[in-house]
């Protein structure tokens, strides 16, 4: 444990470099550059608002803010897991030649997505102010979903990065699973407003939905929903532990397959 920690501090600078590389290269050849971090969620929000604004009744809370809360958390989860999934294979040439703690790659890709996500929260603040959503002390409750979603994404990312080394199919399979997750996140509708809820359990078992619910609660000045808070916390902890364990067990075999 101690040696692992020492090793981490030795390669701390590498982690920083990898994150910097991810972010730098992502926007390198675009004219607007990092501005896209803000523009992209703003534009999708506008699209979703225009298309789906009928789904929420009058007098409800601000629809754009409602969408944005869900959309931002989901897109972090989706890009975070997708990049982590590919991280080991993408760096295969390095892994074969230079010794570096291998968890650095999924960790760095998740962290860089997280950083972009945190920056994009500026859009949410802007839209909330524009929509005159009154902020209450409940806003501090947003800290929990924001922290938990990171560990959920990292945990899932670790598992996926390991599995992807052995089964290339996962990349395609995961996009389909992500679609399922997206539709059960209730990004642009309310679960309660669905006329016939046949599969309510599907929302209850989606940890990302739990996080989104509590994030919205915090933004709209409500206290956290305890079921969703504990469920998402427990789920993320289990995934994180399992992911680390799996990664640790399998990492020496990567080189034989990549």
């Amino acid at each position: 444990m101690l040696t692992a920690f020492k090793n981490f501090s030795k390669f701390r600078y590498l982690l920083y470099e990898l994150i910097k590389k991810d972010i730098k290269l992502k926007y390198r050849s675009s004219i607007l550059g990092v501005l896209w971090t803000l523009l992209e969620p703003l534009l999708t929000m506008i699209v979703l608002t225009v298309v789906f604004s009928g789904l929420l009744g009058k007098g409800d809370e601000s629809f754009p803010v409602y969408i944005l809360c869900g959309r931002l958390l989901y897109s972090f989860f989706s890009t975070g897991t997708k990049t982590a999934l590919k991280s080991i294979r993408k760096n295969s040439s390095t892994i074969k030649k230079v010794y570096v703690p291998k968890y650095m790659y999924p960790l760095a890709s998740t962290l860089s997505s997280y950083l972009i996500f945190l920056i994009s929260l500026i859009v949410l603040v802007g839209v909330a102010l524009y929509e005159k959503v009154t902020l209450t002390p409940a806003i501090f409750g947003a800290v929990f979903p924001l922290i938990i979603v990171f560990f959920l994404t990292l945990g899932v990312g670790l598992i996926l990065s390991v599995l992807d080394v052995f089964f290339r199919d996962l990349e395609y399979l995961w996009t389909v699973i992500l679609m399922l997750i997206m539709y059960t996140c209730a990004i642009f509708y309310k679960v309660e407003s669905l006329s016939t809820i046949t599969n309510e359990w599907i929302f209850k078992i989606n940890p990302l939905y739990s996080l989104i619910v509590n994030f919205r609660n915090a933004i709209f000045g409500r206290g956290p929903d305890m079921y969703h808070l504990w469920y998402s916390l427990a789920f993320s902890a289990v995934v994180m532990l399992f992911g680390s364990f799996l990664f640790y067990k399998k990492q020496d075999k990567f080189i034989l397959y990549i």
Binding site: Y13, Y16, S93, V98
Partner: peptide, 22 residues
């Protein structure tokens, strides 16, 4: 082997150096 092809030589010096633990 640790170079990123989209990175410039200067940036790769830092990246590759960090991989070697500098």
């Amino acid at each position: 082997a640790g170079f990123d092809k989209d990175y410039t030589g200067a940036e790769n010096i830092y990246l590759y150096g960090s991989m070697l633990g500098y």
